[in-house]
Every structure is written in C-alpha cells, then in structure tokens.
Amino acid sequence: MSRKSILLFLFVILVIGLMTYQSKSKHLLPFQFLNNPITKLHDGLSSLKDSLKTPFKRMLLREKENIRLKTEIDKLMIERQNFKEVLLENKRLKELLLLKDKTPNYITIARVIARGPDQWSNTFVLDKGSSAGIKKDMVAITAKGLVGKISEVSNSYSNLLLITDINFFAAVRVQEGRQEGIISGTGLRRCQLKYIPYDEDVKKGDILITSGLDNLFTKGIPVGYVSKVDKTGSGLFQNIEVVPFADNRKIEEVIIISR
C-alpha cells in the first residue's frame, strides 16, 4: 500500500469517526466564527450591488411607467375621439329630426353605408330599402339641401344617385331671379345649371332651389349656389357652374322623402 493510499485511508477513517462521534454528542464547528464576517462582507457587497442596480431599476421602472402612460393616453385619445364622434352624430341626427318635423313627405332616415361599387358613377348605398318604405325616384335630402334621388331599391338596401352624377337631372329655379333651368351633375364635385339664356341675369352666389316642375322633386328644396357664370360661349345658353349645398364627402345620413 502506497503512502498516498494510507493517507487517504486514514483521512476517511478519521472523518467517519468524527462524524460518528458528533452524531452521538455535541457538534463540532471549528470555523463557525467565520460566519459573521463572511455574512457582513456579503451584506456589504449586496448593498453595493443594490446601490449600483437601483438607478437602473428606477430607469427601467420609469420606462415601463412611460409605456403604460402612453398606452393610457392612446386609449383616452380613442375614447375622446369616439365621444366626439358620438357628439357630432347626435348633432347631425338632431338636425335631421328637426328637418323631419318640417318635411311633410317624410318616409325615413337612412344611413350611408358605402359608396356605389361603380367607380364611374356617383352613388351611395343606403342601409334601408323597400321594407322601410323607400321606392325608386324618391328624393334624398339633408338639412343643407338636396342630395340625390333613389335609383335602385332592394328589400334592405337602396342606391342613391347623387346630384353630382352625370345622369342626374332636376328642374331648378334661381331663388332671387326666378329663372328656371335644369341642374345636372358633371361627375365631379360641381354641377351644371343648364338652359339659362344669355339675356338672363344670373350672378355668382345666387341660390338654386328645386322648382317642382319636373314632377320628381318637391318644390323649394335648396340645391346649391352659383359659383361661376360664363357668358363667353358660342351656344344659346350660359355655362353656369353650381356648388351643391350638401357636400357628398360629408354626408352620413339622409332623409328620404316622397314626391
């Protein structure tokens, strides 16, 4: 047996003996006094570590708080926006209700749910159809004025041909000068007042109302105002440009009235 093996053997025997002795009597802990200084050192290091970590922790917390607050702000902004939207809708509906009371041929109020699928025509799809009493050629108005007429009706939906559509025609009268003409769409935002002879005096800013002579539109519905008068053309009639009162881009609800 080598010296090393004897050393190991003695060591193992000694330690096992020591443990056996301790299991029956008092425990021996020769280096227990080290516990205190090591714990103190550990505490010191821990406080140092904490003091180094704390600013970063605070930064992280602030960052988290910042993100949370930003999310909160976004949420509040959306809520505010929704609230504003409800207020505006309320205002519009109030206007429509007032108009409803004043309008004798009232049928229903319809909501614009989409633009017409044909990109070459100016139409709206309304959320109500024949089940709500809507029929073809009925008139759509807002508090501002004429919007168009119903071109197609299904049970739950209807198509509204807008005043700006090239296929739209209505008999109108200049409110001030009482001249009669026909308004038609141009496919753009403006309309055209047709058949006003050169000798008639129509001024920029004159208001047009429906005349009722076409037997399609009730008399007296505001249509728009004259924005441009051109007498330089070679034809028999003046070229008069009209801006409709009801801006198609802002219409959300319309009142449907019968003839």
């Binding site: 190991l8 060591f11 096992i16 021996l28 802990l29």
Partner: peptide, 24 residues
Amino acid sequence: GSIEDSLSGTFLGPYLLSKGMVGY
C-alpha cells in the same frame, strides 16, 4: 471542507470528507 461545514451550521464532517477526497 471544515470551513464549509462550520458555515453550514450542521456538523463537522460531510464537506470535510468530500473536499478532502476531491483534493486527493
């Protein structure tokens, strides 16, 4: 091993034996 045993607060021996064996 003795230090570890002392710091562990149980009794002198387990770490003493294990660390002694490892050292050897």
